[in-house]
Computed example of a mutant assay.
Amino acid sequence: MKAFYLLQTLGTVAVILVMIIVWGVPLAPTLLFYEWLTEIFSSSNKWVDALYTGLSLSSSVIFYCFSLLLFSSLLQFVLHIRIKEKSVFPLASFTTIRWAFCGQIIRATQPILQHFVPSFVSNLYYRICGAKIGKKTQINTHRLNDPCLIRIDDGCVVGGGATFNGHLVEKGEIVFAPIHMKAGSLVGAGATVQPGVTIGENAVIASHGLIPKYRTIPQNEVWGGLPARIIQSSSERREMNS
């Protein structure tokens, strides 16, 4: 038990250090940007000067947000695990440590990221982190927790607050399994997609549904519930749409 508490304490210290780095480094260019703005925009009138200061501060906040997203995504690009199929590692492994650092980096970024979904900004962020995202895809969530294990094809929609997890812990080991959304599929708001799931073309996961690990959802079907079960078959959907 003492060893566990020692490990927990060291882990907490490591998390704090990661947060200091992730939040602190982007502040450096932001401070320089703010100083540059205040040098350009100044006035002897206190009301005008107050307006300039307010606009400079708000502009600097936006600048910081973009700096944080860029720095966070580049860190994950360097550190993220390169896995293309289901893989199992001991909890005490270098791969697990790399994954844990990436997880903390993305958690430190999520409070900012949530304000940029859905947009090209969040899609670009996820791509740099290692996710494969197709064209005309809308991702309205900041909870793609393992971007490097996620592939989302063309024309997909991920609803607000949906959660994707590409990992789980079983029997003292950590398991990584990629998630694949095929073209035209949809995951509803608040749904949860577990490791190793494949969602077929034009399939739909209803809001707040839970797709268990390693499940394959056939194309054109509608699934929902906790855990998710088939609600509407592909033939029934064709009949309704005809």
Rank of each mutant, 00 (worst) to 15 (best):
G190E: 14
R229W: 15
N123G: 12
P29F: 08
H208T: 15
F89G: 00
A50T: 06
H142R: 12
G188P: 11
S72V: 04
Q110R: 13
G11P: 02
V18W: 14
Y214Q: 05
G224Q: 03
I106Q: 03
Y64Q: 01
Q104G: 10
G190H: 02
Y34I: 02
F41D: 03
G209K: 02
G134R: 03
F4S: 15
A3N: 08
S60N: 11
E239F: 15
V13I: 13
L57T: 11
T137Y: 15
R82V: 07
K46L: 11
K86V: 05
Y64K: 01
S43Y: 05
K84G: 07
I152E: 04
F116D: 01
T163K: 01
L168D: 09
T141P: 01
I231C: 12
I97P: 10
G200L: 10
P195C: 09
Q110N: 11
G224H: 02
V61N: 10
E85V: 00
I40P: 12
I40H: 08
Q232P: 02
T109R: 09
G134V: 09
V61Y: 08
H208L: 14
V22N: 06
A3M: 11
R151E: 05
G196Q: 09
S73W: 05
T141D: 00
H167C: 07
K182I: 00
M1D: 15
A183D: 14
V158E: 07
I231N: 12
N220E: 07
D146M: 00
L57S: 09
F71C: 09
G209R: 03
R82L: 00
E170F: 11
C156P: 03
I105H: 07
S119G: 05
P178Q: 01
I20S: 14
K182R: 10
L32G: 15
L6K: 15
Q232W: 15
S59R: 10
W99H: 11
S119P: 12
S67K: 03
A108Q: 12
L124C: 10
F116Q: 01
F120M: 15
F89W: 01
I150F: 11
I230M: 10
A131N: 08
Q138M: 10
C156W: 04
N220V: 04
G200A: 14
V175K: 13
G196C: 12
Y34P: 01
I16C: 10
M181F: 00
L124V: 07
F120I: 15
I217A: 04
E236W: 04
Q110L: 08
